[in-house]
Write a protein that binds this DNA or RNA. Sequence first.
DNA 1: TTGCTTCAACATTCTTTGCACCCT
DNA 2: AAGGGTGCTTTGAATGTTGAAGCA
Length: 898
Amino acid sequence: MNSQHNAEGSLTEISRDAVGKLLCRANKVGTSKKKKMVEYVPEQNGTQVREPIVPSKTSEVEHCSRNSIGKDPAEEKCGHVCLDEGYMDKKEELDDLDWEDGTVATDDHSMTIELNVTPDSSVPKKIRRVSAEDKESAELVHKVHLLCLLARGRLIDSACDDPLIQASLLSLLPAHLLQLSNVTKLTSKALHPLISWFHDNFHVKNYTNGEKAPHFALASALEFREGSPEELAALSVALFRALNLTSRFVSILDVSPLKPDQSFRPIASGSSKGIFNTSTPMVSKKKLDFKSPKKSLSYEKQKLCESSLGHSWKSKKCIAPSNMHQSKDPSVAEVLNHSVTNFPTSEVHDINPESHITDKSHKPKRKGDVEFEMQLEMALSVTAIGSSKSKEESGENADSSSFSCPSKRIKRVVGEESSASPQLISTAVGSLKVGSPLYWAEVYCSEENLTGKWVHIDAVNLIIDGEDKVEAMVAACKASLRYVVAFAGQGAKDVTRRYCMKWYKIASQRVNSTWWDSVLAPLRNLESGATGGVVHSRTNQIISTEANMNDSFVPTRSSLEDIELETRALTEPLPTNQQAYKNHPLYALEKWLTRYQILHPKGPIVGFCSGHPVYPRTCVQTVMTKLRWLQEGLQVKPNEHPAKELKRPNKPQKVQDFEADDYDCTTDSKENIKLYGKWQLEPLNLPHAVNGIVPKNDRGQVDVWSEKCLPPGTVHLRFPRAYDVAKRLEIDSAPAMVGFEFKNGRAYPVHQGIVVCAEFKDVLLEAFAEEAERLQEEEKKRDEAQALRRWYQLLSSIVTRQRLNNRYNNNLTSEVPNDVHCINDNVSSAAVCDSDDKNQTSIQHQMEKCDTDLDTSLSIPVKDHEHVFLKEYESFDEETSLLTKRCQCGFSVQVEEL
DNA sequence: TTGCTTCAACATTCTTTGCACCCT
DNA sequence: AAGGGTGCTTTGAATGTTGAAGCA
């Protein structure tokens, strides 16, 4: 176990480093910008200032970016390295000068002052824009962080389902509050005493218990009745679930920014050192005396098991139910018995197969499940380490680091006087310090509204039904709630809309919705399976069937909630500033329409902003030129007038420049860009191909922007030399223009293949195949001929060489050099005599003969020595296909395998 | 102090159908 | 001499994005 922990630690370390580096990269822009701005200064100052002025802010991020990421070339050019080198160069120069004349040094100094023409203040500001790469990496970090937090939320949620935790909570609960589990018509008001009790008994702490899995962290928080806001919110959810209330664990996913160069400050976090430090130091509270003196028996037992067995939390669950019976309170024992002992059987009734993560060890796991669990574990460890670390850091100055953002007065429904405890130090009259609203619970109250409602319950801050306050609280922390996700049944659902009143403000800060929706899709199903209509998994059979019956004629909770959130989206209040309308999903101002946008129909006016009429976004239509619509496979209906006309940008055509002024006013009106809207279009109606003739445009070609643009009855053949093939077969064809290439400021058409009548397609393809085969054959022949030519050349040279050797070296006793390529007389003579008639086939034949001769005889008499080529001295080079045969005397022959 | 507007600077997108000259 | 390859005058305006300044 220890080793496993170590391994896990290293893994999480690695993960943290990796993501940290990514973050550093994402944040690099800001820091590097500063760096550059600073380091430009000394460069312009010449050598006078040697040390670059280091900005006072030496953040870890910057440090990291310097260390972990290779310097980019631009940085190297103007960065400190360059400065140092410059200095060194200068110094060398200086030394040289010293060597020549000792007095120059001072001159040199003064010269540098002369160079320093521009004072620091007048240095033009260099604002480095974020590059596409920076944006991409920021988005990547954003997504990864989002997934990590999502995974963490799921783990917390599964911990809330833990029957031991639930049972222990119930064991603490006063008997009168247990009645809540029997309430069928639940209202938010009915929850007040329960929340109040929870608030009084569980308190926020600023330090951490160390790195613990959610199950253990919750158990620990339960035991000591204090914990992080996250743990307490989770405990409240566990309590609701223990009481058979349908509830969710809701969390704001406080992710790193989507766009680079935005400093990421985790909500309510004292310092931001990385995306993992999302700790949430809260209002420091004195640990209150427990009103209920008895401790959780089950946890004492469990701790015992833990120490004696050293097993995982999961394994202990099996023995837990028997322990529950030892509870002294009979009612509690009954409830426990009911809720906990039902647990093993509940999986039978449970609709959601994954709702009991705790039992997974007993089920055969699929490979994907195992992998997913591992990923979850990793995500958990990573986030747990990060947060705990920051908590440890903030632990020292717990009071000072406690939540300090001013907050608007929030709804405190019950026990406001008691909750305004002395430990809440207010800095302003009328303001209350509240904990960071990162985590809370949602309980489904069937008697709220007509159809029932998910009620926001922040047990930590004692806020009930304060959904409209969350945004203000988050805003008070100078953060925005971009993602609010509700977790239940191992699933998750984005409920940001419920808490966000100004969606247009956060929409741009969220990741692209397609990706996010696809991530959430499977989780949504799990979530709605656990909460939508069907009462929670621990509910008994009767209630479950009742709910099922209800579901058969009542929309599910999930779908009702979807409608609710959708309605919120559609009834968002009008923004008060004009800029907000620029990309607002619901509303538009004519002022902010782009060149190619138009209001159609122009109305209804839904309001006014600074005197400008506000129209629904649905009225905004895109207009395009005829050509652009053509590219989309649409054409403008006949007799349609342009919906909008734009003045053609003045592009004076070189030679006519001087004449342009004369008839500018007259031509302009004629050459306006005519734009048409979608409502003025019809499907493309191109002339049909008749009698094998392809209808062409005035340039004798067919513009193939897409398949839609092909005249009916024609096909686009893209194979090379198609035009030649068609021409040879005397088939009518037209070059296919597929687009433009922009070079030197001009557009050049790009042609690819041809357009022919469909009936010729097969013929042409066949002809092309034949052609291709023929070309291949020709190429092969050409290659072979070339090979033979080279062989002939080689053999000729060898023969010549041999002749020269025979003639002039006969009398000499010199040895044949090792690397001289030799060949026996038979071969050479054969090659020579055959080379004369230049018959390629016979040459080839002789080559083969030569090859076999070499293979079989392998004995070439040279003078007294007869070469013997033994097999073991052979070597074959696969690249050149050359076989090298060697004689013991050192003589070698290379043979090419044909 | 905060939020909004305006402006400037830079980045990105859209634009959209040759020709003269040289070499083989 | 014909035909293929290569390189020009290396656009430029509109729009989108971001930061800074000014103002209420």
